[in-house]
């Protein structure tokens, strides 16, 4: 227009990304997440305290049982629902939406910011734990670390995409996300093996098997299937979020 011809909307992505990252790094929330992310390191130190280097056991109980089962979904739910949900809550979403940007660009940049923070925290957490306890075991340890980093990345991307999408549909996204994590991913997916095809945690672990068999009782999902399903989840969640944002309406009654 006056200040130049329309530019590629992709150029707006880094701007939204930057602002979202600053938005998400609120004080108390980040502190809680840092505390959670420090757990693998803490537990690794405990293992070393007892002079144990036990890749299998540490990965199963800490990487799988704590990080992928608890810390990863919690981090993703906080960042994923916060990325757009906080803007809706506080009313700043209007500034973002009153711009000549295609809606997919808004969704994508929000999701990328949430995913970047989630992965930074969780992958960092795995590496910290692995450096102390797993990698010293040698080749096996390195492979296991790769596997869990891979699983975390896949799981993190899926969780974030899903939670970003959920936050477009409801203001109670965080509570719903927690309920889903606990009941579906936590309780049901371990009780009912049939859920493996519909559980992000299983996709993550399945994808991790790509690098090395994670040593669980027969892997529930073959790695190829897990990766394909993850891509389907991420893409459809982002498409759904975009679709919803295109039909965005301010909620609330008359005035």
């Amino acid at each position: 227009m006056i200040h130049g011809s329309p530019r590629n909307p992709i150029l707006a992505l880094p701007e939204i990304f930057r602002v979202t990252v600053r938005q998400l790094l609120g004080r108390r929330r980040t502190l809680l997440l840092l505390l959670l992310a420090a757990l693998p390191l803490l537990l690794a130190l405990v293992f070393r305290l007892f002079d144990r280097i036990d890749v299998q056991r540490f990965s199963n109980s800490v990487f799988d049982g704590v990080l992928i089962a608890i810390v990863l979904p919690l981090t993703a739910v906080l960042f994923g629902t916060g990325a757009f949900g906080a803007e809706l809550d506080e009313g700043t979403a209007l500034y973002l939406l009153a711009k000549p940007l295609p809606r997919w660009a808004v969704v994508l940049s929000k999701a990328m910011a949430a995913a970047a923070l989630t992965l930074l925290l969780t992958v960092g957490s795995i590496l910290a734990g692995a450096l102390v306890e797993v990698i010293p075991a040698g080749e096996v340890g390195v492979r296991a670390t790769e596997a869990y980093v891979g699983a975390t990345v896949v799981g993190g991307l899926c969780y974030v995409a899903v939670f970003v999408a959920v936050s477009m549909f409801t203001r109670r996204a965080l509570v719903i996300g927690i309920g889903y994590t606990l009941i579906w991913e936590g309780l049901l997916s371990s009780m009912l093996p049939g859920i493996a095809n519909l559980s992000i945690r299983q996709y993550a672990l399945g994808a991790g098997d790509w690098f090395v068999q994670l040593g669980r009782e027969p892997a529930r999902l073959p790695p190829e299937t897990a990766v394909v399903l993850s891509v389907v989840v991420v893409v459809s969640a982002l498409v759904l979020a975009t679709w919803r944002l295109m039909r965005f309406e301010l909620s609330g009654g008359a005035d």
């Binding site: 803490l42 405990v46 109980s61 704590v66 509570v175």
Partner: peptide, 21 residues
């Protein structure tokens, strides 16, 4: 809610892992 959840999951789980090892 997240804080309460984190407490009940982690204080449940972590001591048992340390105890086991």
């Amino acid at each position: 809610a997240v804080g309460v959840l984190a407490y009940f999951l982690l204080v449940e789980f972590v001591p048992l892992v340390i105890y086991g090892i």
